[in-house]
Protein backbone atom coordinates (compact mmCIF):
# COMPACT_ATOMS: atom_id res chain seq x y z
CA UNK A 1 0.00 0.00 0.00
CA UNK A 2 1.46 3.34 -1.07
CA UNK A 3 1.62 5.65 1.94
CA UNK A 4 3.83 8.46 0.70
CA UNK A 5 5.04 9.58 -2.66
CA UNK A 6 8.08 11.71 -1.99
CA UNK A 7 10.40 13.54 -4.33
CA UNK A 8 12.94 10.79 -4.59
CA UNK A 9 11.20 7.65 -3.40
CA UNK A 10 7.81 6.12 -2.77
CA UNK A 11 7.06 4.48 0.56
CA UNK A 12 4.89 1.38 0.75
CA UNK A 13 3.59 -0.18 3.92
CA UNK A 14 3.80 -3.96 3.37
CA UNK A 15 3.68 -7.30 5.11
CA UNK A 16 7.05 -9.05 4.74
CA UNK A 17 7.77 -12.37 6.47
CA UNK A 18 5.10 -11.62 9.06
CA UNK A 19 6.47 -8.22 9.75
CA UNK A 20 5.08 -4.81 9.07
CA UNK A 21 7.72 -3.15 6.93
CA UNK A 22 8.35 -0.05 4.87
CA UNK A 23 9.42 -0.68 1.32
CA UNK A 24 11.25 2.30 0.01
CA UNK A 25 11.31 2.22 -3.75
CA UNK A 26 13.23 4.67 -5.83
CA UNK A 27 11.18 4.41 -8.98
CA UNK A 28 12.71 5.69 -12.20
CA UNK A 29 12.07 9.38 -12.68
CA UNK A 30 10.92 9.89 -16.21
CA UNK A 31 12.04 13.50 -16.21
CA UNK A 32 15.72 12.53 -15.86
CA UNK A 33 17.92 11.11 -18.62
CA UNK A 34 18.37 7.40 -17.93
CA UNK A 35 22.08 7.54 -17.14
CA UNK A 36 21.65 10.24 -14.50
CA UNK A 37 18.53 8.53 -13.18
CA UNK A 38 20.34 5.22 -12.71
CA UNK A 39 23.32 6.90 -11.10
CA UNK A 40 21.20 8.73 -8.56
CA UNK A 41 18.90 5.82 -7.74
CA UNK A 42 21.54 3.16 -7.33
CA UNK A 43 23.87 5.45 -5.40
CA UNK A 44 21.21 6.49 -2.93
CA UNK A 45 19.83 2.95 -2.55
CA UNK A 46 23.24 1.57 -1.69
CA UNK A 47 24.37 4.50 0.37
CA UNK A 48 21.31 5.06 2.56
CA UNK A 49 21.33 1.68 4.39
CA UNK A 50 25.05 2.05 5.08
CA UNK A 51 24.60 5.41 6.70
CA UNK A 52 21.48 4.28 8.58
CA UNK A 53 23.60 1.53 10.07
CA UNK A 54 26.35 3.95 11.03
CA UNK A 55 23.78 6.26 12.62
CA UNK A 56 22.78 3.41 14.94
CA UNK A 57 26.41 3.09 16.00
CA UNK A 58 26.32 6.78 16.80
CA UNK A 59 23.39 6.15 19.15
CA UNK A 60 20.74 7.65 16.91
CA UNK A 61 17.55 5.59 16.55
CA UNK A 62 16.92 4.67 12.92
CA UNK A 63 14.84 1.96 11.22
CA UNK A 64 16.42 -1.49 10.98
CA UNK A 65 17.29 -2.47 7.42
CA UNK A 66 16.02 -5.91 6.36
CA UNK A 67 16.91 -6.05 2.69
CA UNK A 68 18.57 -4.02 -0.05
CA UNK A 69 17.85 -4.66 -3.71
CA UNK A 70 20.09 -2.47 -5.86
CA UNK A 71 18.66 -3.67 -9.19
CA UNK A 72 15.17 -2.68 -8.13
CA UNK A 73 16.42 0.33 -6.15
CA UNK A 74 14.40 -0.93 -3.19
CA UNK A 75 15.16 -1.02 0.53
CA UNK A 76 13.02 -2.97 2.97
CA UNK A 77 13.14 -1.53 6.48
CA UNK A 78 11.41 -1.62 9.83
CA UNK A 79 8.10 0.20 10.05
CA UNK A 80 8.33 2.80 12.80
CA UNK A 81 5.08 3.25 14.63
CA UNK A 82 4.56 6.88 15.59
CA UNK A 83 3.92 10.33 14.26
CA UNK A 84 6.02 12.74 12.25
CA UNK A 85 7.39 15.49 14.47
CA UNK A 86 5.90 17.89 11.91
CA UNK A 87 2.42 16.63 12.84
CA UNK A 88 2.77 16.83 16.60
CA UNK A 89 4.92 19.89 17.18
CA UNK A 90 2.06 22.38 16.74
CA UNK A 91 -0.09 20.62 19.36
CA UNK A 92 2.62 20.55 21.98
CA UNK A 93 2.92 22.89 24.94
CA UNK A 94 5.92 25.21 24.88
CA UNK A 95 7.63 23.04 27.46
CA UNK A 96 7.07 19.78 25.58
CA UNK A 97 8.19 21.43 22.39
CA UNK A 98 11.43 22.62 23.95
CA UNK A 99 12.16 19.21 25.36
CA UNK A 100 11.53 17.55 22.00
CA UNK A 101 13.68 20.07 20.14
CA UNK A 102 16.45 19.52 22.65
CA UNK A 103 16.32 15.75 22.03
CA UNK A 104 16.39 16.35 18.26
CA UNK A 105 19.42 18.63 18.63
CA UNK A 106 21.18 16.03 20.73
CA UNK A 107 20.63 13.37 18.06
CA UNK A 108 21.91 15.67 15.31
CA UNK A 109 24.96 16.30 17.47
CA UNK A 110 25.58 12.57 17.77
CA UNK A 111 25.34 12.14 14.01
CA UNK A 112 27.83 14.95 13.47
CA UNK A 113 30.16 13.52 16.11
CA UNK A 114 30.26 10.36 14.01
CA UNK A 115 30.90 12.20 10.77
CA UNK A 116 27.37 11.78 9.45
CA UNK A 117 25.52 14.59 7.71
CA UNK A 118 21.82 13.86 7.39
CA UNK A 119 21.31 16.14 4.39
CA UNK A 120 17.56 16.64 4.75
CA UNK A 121 16.81 17.60 8.34
CA UNK A 122 13.13 18.47 8.43
CA UNK A 123 10.45 17.69 10.98
CA UNK A 124 8.89 15.33 8.41
CA UNK A 125 11.94 13.09 8.61
CA UNK A 126 11.71 12.52 12.37
CA UNK A 127 9.23 10.11 13.91
CA UNK A 128 8.11 10.40 17.52
CA UNK A 129 7.15 6.96 18.81
CA UNK A 130 4.45 6.35 21.44
CA UNK A 131 7.29 5.65 23.90
CA UNK A 132 8.68 9.10 23.34
CA UNK A 133 11.66 8.02 21.29
CA UNK A 134 12.69 10.12 18.28
CA UNK A 135 13.65 8.07 15.22
CA UNK A 136 15.46 9.68 12.29
CA UNK A 137 14.40 8.44 8.86
CA UNK A 138 15.19 9.23 5.25
CA UNK A 139 18.95 9.31 4.89
CA UNK A 140 18.70 9.45 1.10
CA UNK A 141 20.62 12.72 0.87
CA UNK A 142 23.08 11.98 3.64
CA UNK A 143 26.85 11.97 3.39
CA UNK A 144 30.00 11.27 5.35
CA UNK A 145 31.75 14.44 6.39
CA UNK A 146 33.37 16.00 9.40
CA UNK A 147 33.75 19.43 7.84
CA UNK A 148 32.38 22.43 9.66
CA UNK A 149 30.88 23.66 6.39
CA UNK A 150 28.70 20.58 5.80
CA UNK A 151 27.63 20.52 9.45
CA UNK A 152 26.66 24.16 9.16
CA UNK A 153 24.59 23.54 6.03
CA UNK A 154 22.91 20.55 7.72
CA UNK A 155 21.78 22.66 10.67
CA UNK A 156 20.96 25.58 8.40
CA UNK A 157 18.45 23.27 6.68
CA UNK A 158 16.94 22.39 10.04
CA UNK A 159 16.58 26.06 10.86
CA UNK A 160 14.99 26.73 7.48
CA UNK A 161 12.55 23.86 8.00
CA UNK A 162 11.40 25.52 11.23
CA UNK A 163 11.09 28.88 9.50
CA UNK A 164 9.00 27.56 6.61
CA UNK A 165 6.87 25.02 8.46
CA UNK A 166 6.82 26.02 12.14
CA UNK A 167 7.30 29.76 11.70
CA UNK A 168 5.43 30.72 14.88
CA UNK A 169 8.14 29.38 17.16
CA UNK A 170 10.98 28.85 14.73
CA UNK A 171 13.49 30.82 16.75
CA UNK A 172 12.96 29.21 20.14
CA UNK A 173 12.72 25.76 18.56
CA UNK A 174 16.01 26.15 16.76
CA UNK A 175 17.65 27.59 19.89
CA UNK A 176 16.59 24.47 21.77
CA UNK A 177 17.94 22.28 18.97
CA UNK A 178 21.27 24.03 19.39
CA UNK A 179 21.18 23.51 23.14
CA UNK A 180 20.69 19.78 22.65
CA UNK A 181 23.37 19.84 20.00
CA UNK A 182 25.84 21.45 22.38
CA UNK A 183 25.16 18.70 24.94
CA UNK A 184 26.31 16.13 22.40
CA UNK A 185 29.19 17.97 20.78
CA UNK A 186 30.40 20.24 23.55
CA UNK A 187 29.99 24.00 23.73
CA UNK A 188 33.05 24.83 21.69
CA UNK A 189 31.96 22.77 18.66
CA UNK A 190 28.41 24.09 18.94
CA UNK A 191 29.67 27.66 19.04
CA UNK A 192 31.79 27.12 15.95
CA UNK A 193 28.97 25.61 13.96
CA UNK A 194 26.64 28.42 14.99
CA UNK A 195 29.17 30.91 13.65
CA UNK A 196 29.31 28.89 10.45
CA UNK A 197 25.52 28.94 10.09
CA UNK A 198 25.61 32.73 10.33
CA UNK A 199 28.25 32.84 7.63
CA UNK A 200 26.20 30.52 5.39
CA UNK A 201 23.14 32.70 5.87
CA UNK A 202 25.07 35.82 4.95
CA UNK A 203 26.37 34.05 1.86
CA UNK A 204 22.80 33.38 0.77
CA UNK A 205 21.16 35.73 -1.64
CA UNK A 206 19.51 38.84 -0.37
CA UNK A 207 20.19 38.59 3.28
CA UNK A 208 20.39 42.14 4.49
CA UNK A 209 23.61 43.21 6.17
CA UNK A 210 21.83 43.26 9.48
CA UNK A 211 20.74 39.76 8.60
CA UNK A 212 17.04 40.11 9.05
CA UNK A 213 15.88 36.61 8.38
CA UNK A 214 12.12 36.23 8.48
CA UNK A 215 10.70 34.39 11.42
Amino acid sequence: MLIKRGAEASLYLEEWHNRKVIMKRRLPKKYRVSKLDEEIRSYRTLHEPQIIHRAKEAGVPTPTIFMVDIAEATVVMEFINGKQVKQVLDDFSAEERCRLCCVIGNLIGRLHNHGIIHGDLTTSNMILTPHGKVVFVDFGLSEHSTELETRGVDLHLMKRAFQSTHYKYAKESFNMVMEGYAEATGNEAAKNVLEKIKEIEKRGRYVSERKEVAV
Binding site: K4, R5, G6, A7, E8, K29, Y31, R32, V33, L36, I40
Partner: peptide, 16 residues
Amino acid sequence: ETVFSMLTEVTERALA
Protein backbone atom coordinates in the same frame (compact mmCIF):
# COMPACT_ATOMS: atom_id res chain seq x y z
CA GLU B 1 20.05 17.85 -17.70
CA THR B 2 21.91 18.08 -14.40
CA VAL B 3 20.75 21.52 -13.27
CA PHE B 4 17.16 21.00 -14.37
CA SER B 5 17.00 17.58 -12.68
CA MET B 6 18.19 19.25 -9.48
CA LEU B 7 15.53 21.97 -9.80
CA THR B 8 12.85 19.41 -10.54
CA GLU B 9 13.84 17.26 -7.59
CA VAL B 10 13.61 20.12 -5.08
CA THR B 11 10.36 21.38 -6.59
CA GLU B 12 8.90 17.90 -6.28
CA ARG B 13 10.11 17.75 -2.69
CA ALA B 14 8.36 21.05 -1.92
CA LEU B 15 5.24 19.79 -3.66
CA ALA B 16 5.24 16.56 -1.66
